[in-house]
Nucleic acid binder design. Structure first.
Lengths: 227, 227
DNA sequence: ACAAATTATTGTCTAATGGTAAGTTTTATG
DNA sequence: CATAAAACTTACCATTAGACAATAATTTGT
């Protein structure tokens, strides 16, 4: 059916517009009319496709999380060892396309919706759990189960922390800076000898190179910016 | 003059009411009228004392940060060694009075104001910088300058991360859990032998005991809940 | 190809909200 | 007590979220 496809397209257009509105005006000053203006339609259309403002924000929230998890999945495809997969998770979470001042600011604005919106809560928890489980899967190769769990939780929380900081600080946080802070934690928390240090270094380098091609490609960006 | 003191009292009452409103309804559903209701005054009074809604939220933001830094300062008074001062910073940031689901949720809601409100930004940055500098001061006793800086930044960011998680998760995050997660990071990032391990353990224990008395006291709570 | 049904879109209406401005009461001070 | 300043109230306006009905476009069944 094309009807449902049109509906799907409109919903995507509108949540993109809402995302843009949150970036431009902040959550509190984002109105349905401004969202409509950005999307080039009237306010009524927005409410035709989304039950209410909360439902729209839910969609925006889900959209930005899909962006993130999509990047991880994409980079994962090129990672061949536990070292590389670990770095794929880190690098994907801080790649410029999604980790930049605007997106982080929007994310910081949007999470304020979580405490009083169970659907956003669900999305957020699923997202945390996914990253934790991804990390856990790789860390088991380097650490005993119990310690791997602690490190996985630590790294997951720390990713959130860096994102919040990036959204709150007035100056942009460099991708390289963020990844290096994660590396600092990994070096302290994983067993490090000359061999593993070299493997980590190599893995980070390879994954960063792959990311520029895989996540930076026009094809991937378009796939993402449209869906 | 008593006039200005009345004004000061009202501003405190109103920002407390606004804080309560954010906890109850979430930032987006917090209206000036609801704030007035909680404070037992009409909406006009709120706007008489605060230029507009942004100014009110700024005050709420500043108030919650004062709560936090006040706890650190208070606990610091009882800490006598670098170990104890380090743990005072950690424990103060996660003491039940300020680290609980409601307050964390309110904090998560309020930080969405930061990106588009320079005054909130100023407060937030000052707060981050204060904690970083506090940590740095103690960590210099355990690590060389450069590494101490990295660890200080890491711990500071991680505190934010735990706060965000506590605000986003549907179940409460235990004080003990949060502090133990910080301890995990400290154990990994500071030099640990039998002697220092014992000193850390002792310091944490002492400071936690002191916190129950110093921060849990009725006098301190009243001083805080009123000012 | 065409009528019926479904879907997209717009415009209108209401209640609630942020904010203003004018007016009233209370308080401080000479 | 008089007067000025501050605290507070009320009435009001523009904007907003959201409901709803009317209209245009599009798909589907025949």
């Amino acid at each position: 059916m094309r009807t449902s496809s049109i509906r799907a397209i409109r919903r995507v257009e509108l949540s993109r517009a809402a995302f843009e509105a949150v970036i431009r005006y902040g959550l509190r000053k984002t109105t349905l009319e401004k969202v409509g203006d950005i999307a080039g339609v009237s306010k009524g259309v927005v409410l035709h496709h989304f039950k209410d403002k909360s439902a729209l924000l839910e969609a925006v929230f889900r959209r930005s999380n899909t962006l993130l998890s999509g990047s991880v999945v994409e980079l994962y495809r090129y990672a061949e060892t536990p070292y590389e997969r670990l770095w794929a998770i880190i690098v994907a979470n801080f790649f410029e396309t999604i980790f930049n001042r605007q997106v982080c600011q929007a994310w910081v604005s949007l999470i304020s919706e979580v405490p009083h919106n169970t659907e956003c809560q669900r999305v957020q928890i699923a997202n945390n759990e996914r990253i934790r489980s991804n990390l856990m899967h790789e860390l088991k190769h380097f650490l005993p189960e119990q310690e791997a769990e602690q490190v996985a939780r630590h790294l997951g929380v720390h990713i959130d922390g860096i994102w919040v900081r990036a959204g709150l600080l007035p100056h942009p946080v460099e991708t390289n800076m963020a990844i290096s802070e994660m590396q600092f934690a990994i070096e302290k928390m994983l067993p490090f000898d000359e061999i593993s240090a070299a493997k980590h270094k190599e893995a980070r380098k390879k994954i960063e190179a792959v990311a520029d091609i895989a996540l930076g490609s026009k094809a991937f960006k378009e796939k993402f910016l449209q869906i």
